[in-house]
């Protein structure tokens, strides 16, 4: 498989959220706006890329019996690094005192550790492949996840607050509040996956 193919595979054909339905927790909780979805996606991509790289480099030296704990330590380390970096540099409030991106994503940053996508790619791909291919696989899956989160976030933000990435598109009267609340998350994701299923059949 060519490197390009490895990269695009995770993006479209095996999109972690739409096709494999992995990582549903953050994709429902952090997609109340397109910006949040994008931020969460990029944080996950960072962890996925580096964890795949680190695991591809070390997997041969790790005995089978401690494989999973070793992977978990590597992933948790990277997640903590992302958490620290984000709380240092994307943590300033908006012009009207809106919570910072870090505050909005909140507990879901440390929860990247238990995102099935990360451990899943480590097991299924990185532990058996070369470092460069693994890095690309991680980045591909991560960007596919980012794309999925941004799409769900955009739909919810458009229907719920009438804007996309903070850009006002619809008048306030047409806002359907339920879409930025919990039920809206389930419903939008459900319909988007149904649509992907439909497109895949043709």
């Amino acid at each position: 498989m060519s490197l390009m193919k490895i990269f695009t595979n995770g993006f479209i054909k095996e999109n972690p959220l739409f096709v494999l339905v992995l990582g549903t927790c953050p994709s429902l909780a952090t997609t109340t706006s397109a910006t949040n979805g994008l931020g969460m996606g990029l944080a996950t991509t960072f962890v996925l890329g580096l964890s795949n790289l680190a695991i591809a480099l070390t997997a041969r030296h790790i005995p089978d019996k401690v494989r999973i704990p070793a992977f978990i330590v590597i992933i948790a380390t990277l997640v903590t690094i992302v958490d620290l970096l984000m709380s240092a540099w994307v943590n300033s409030p908006g012009p009207n005192g809106e919570p910072s991106l870090y505050d909005q994503l909140g507990i879901f940053i440390p929860l990247i550790v238990v995102n099935c996508i990360v451990l899943g790619r480590a097991e299924a791909f990185a532990s058996k492949n070369k470092p460069i291919a693994s890095l690309l696989d991680g980045l591909g899956s991560g960007l596919g996840f980012t794309f999925a989160l941004s799409l769900v976030g955009s739909i919810r933000e458009l229907l719920g607050s009438g804007s996309v990435f903070g850009l006002n598109l619809l008048p306030a009267q047409s806002n359907i509040l339920i879409f930025i609340l919990a039920p809206g998350g389930f419903i939008v994701l459900g319909y988007v996956i149904a649509l992907v299923n439909r497109l895949k059949r043709t």
Partner: peptide, 19 residues
């Protein structure tokens, strides 16, 4: 290179190194 065997020493040293 062959995969490392799961001896106690290998298990311990790997985990210590990683942590």
């Amino acid at each position: 290179m062959a995969k490392k065997e799961s001896t106690l020493w290998n298990l311990l040293s790997t985990l210590v190194m990683i942590t």
